[in-house]
Amino acid sequence: MNRETLPLRSQLLYQLLCLLILLIVLFPLLWVFAIALDPRDIARPTSLIPPGASLQAFAKVLQKPTPNPVNFAELARNSLLLAGGVSLFSVVLGTSAAYAFSRFRFPGRQVGMLAFVIVLMLPNVATLAALFVMLNLLIGPQLRNSIVGVGIAMTAASLPFAIWNMKGFIDTIPRDLEEAAHIDGASLNQTFIRIILPLAVPGLAVTALWGFLGGWTEFALSWQFISNPRWFTLAMALYGMQGQYASNTPWSQFAAMSILVSIPAVLIFFALQRYIVSGLTVGGVKG
């Protein structure tokens, strides 16, 4: 195409448009930072730009984020346990199943694929009533009302996605290497561990971290299952802070908490951005 530069007039017009979009994108984020740094920590911010700035709100949130006897570190530990546990569990089980679905023809394959594609589209709210009732009876209200109960319920939702995502990825790995290994006398287990797994590392990372991001901000299941403050997660505490009446909310603390909860998620997202996009679209085509 024409290699010459854009005429200055169009360039400026486009730049103006780009800056306008940037403003719309950044406005909510700037607003969060503005109220988080507001030194007055008031329930009713009165200006878009607060007078002065302080990190008080962050300090308060780290010490005592909610009226419940639980601190930020404990909330973060619960969220980490939940997100990490669910992610690890579904990646390990999911990858092994995905390998079988991708590489072998066996009786029941079609039925199995169909079964997990059907549950793939179910939002986790769809079996909430059944899981809640079932876990109350099977593991008891005590354990249900903890990270374990929520973790089990969340795995139910994240495992089908992990299988689907990993199958999509393993499908793209060429078979030549496995065939060569097979001729050299490698068993199927050896091929899986020595060839498939190392080549699937990007897929594994995306599936794991995608699962982690989902768990990090999971709300509906935790809110239904957990009433014991000891097991509250960051997402639950954040919702609790906002409360019913906006005029009573300590907005600076809410904003500070929002920022703290978001930072790990945003970092992970940007680190994996490339893979997330290609992973999602590849999986979509393969169905």
Binding site: W31, Q242, S258
Partner: peptide, 13 residues
Amino acid sequence: AMPGLVMAMVWKN
């Protein structure tokens, strides 16, 4: 990139 849950609450505010 931002968690949807957090941003939804921010928009409500």
